[in-house]
């Protein structure tokens, strides 16, 4: 769905249907260099489960126009304003990777917006090595390739997928190529700059869920578990896959989110 927002055309996926007033809203927040396609196997599933889903493409990502946000704090404000413009007062936020930093920040600064929080392959900080940042500047397509390769468990090597006929390594590349070419660098720098994660995590007062990946090379499991420890009430599950958990283990992730949502009712 497209919307004129802050002088730009922005896109957010609702799973192909209009938002319904009295439904609870789930907001899926994508990671660095990604867009709403990160959640292809979550968005329409949860629409069918009776939720409103909003999965925005941040500025410059996917189908959204506009100047990119350059920090996690800006990401959070942009998201909060987008939801306000859609008259969404409260939502459960599901973040993936960098999206976890955004929803951590949101939970601290705009707690009134937050009904629930699900951290997927997340951590309180996501430092990025200079090599990846430099590669994203000099040769964005090589950086996409590196991220997709590092980001998936060995099943990705064999093009194994529950989705018949899909080759996730190539598809991951194609999804990233839909963004403006400078987007990845800006996102990676935003991740590097963000230092408020620990404080934000410690202030969360609601029950949360973290779904972590055993073979995560982007946000290592150890860092995900540190986040869990810093949140007062955070259940967690570890799945045997890599960083791109929403496409590697969609059914398992959906089941865990569904169970968590039931606890919020």
């Amino acid at each position: 769905m497209y919307k004129d927002f802050k002088g730009n055309k922005v896109y957010f996926s609702t799973g192909g249907i209009n938002l319904v007033n009295d439904r609870e809203t789930l907001c899926f927040v994508h990671g660095a260099g990604q867009n709403h396609y990160s959640f292809t196997q979550q968005i329409r599933y949860f629409v069918s489960q009776g939720y409103n889903v909003v999965a925005p493409d941040f500025p410059g990502h996917g189908f959204s126009e506009g100047n990119q946000t350059t920090s996690i704090e800006e990401d959070m404000l942009w998201l909060a304003e987008l939801l306000a413009s859609l008259k969404i007062e409260k939502a459960t936020f599901i973040g993936h990777s960098q999206g976890c930093l955004t929803i951590l920040e949101l939970a601290e600064k705009k707690p009134e917006l937050v009904r629930g929080l699900v951290f997927v392959a997340g951590a309180m900080s996501i430092p990025v090595n200079d090599f990846l940042i430099d590669t994203s500047i000099d040769n964005p397509e090589k950086a996409y390739d590196l991220m997709v390769t590092w980001g998936q468990d060995s099943y990705g090597s064999f093009s194994i997928s529950d989705w018949p006929g899909h080759n996730h390594l190539a598809e991951g590349n194609a999804i990233m190529k839909l963004n403006d070419s400078s987007v990845l660098t800006t996102d990676l720098k935003s991740c590097n700059l963000y230092e408020n994660g620990k404080q934000a995590a410690s202030k969360i007062k609601i029950n949360c869920l973290a779904v972590l990946a055993k073979f995560d090379m982007m946000t290592p499991l150890k860092k995900g578990l540190q986040m869990v420890e810093n949140i007062k009430q955070c259940d967690y599950k570890i799945l045997e896959c890599g960083h791109f958990l929403p496409i590697e283990k969609p059914k398992e992730l959906n089941a865990l989110i569904k169970n968590y949502l039931n606890t919020l009712k």
């Binding site: 064999f158 093009s159 194994i160 997928s161 018949p164 006929g165 899909h166 080759n167 390594l169 190539a170 598809e171 194609a174």
Partner: peptide, 14 residues
Amino acid sequence: EQRLASLDGGVSCV
């Protein structure tokens, strides 16, 4: 399909 997609460098195959 997944083998053909990977050999040809495609994202998906039918």
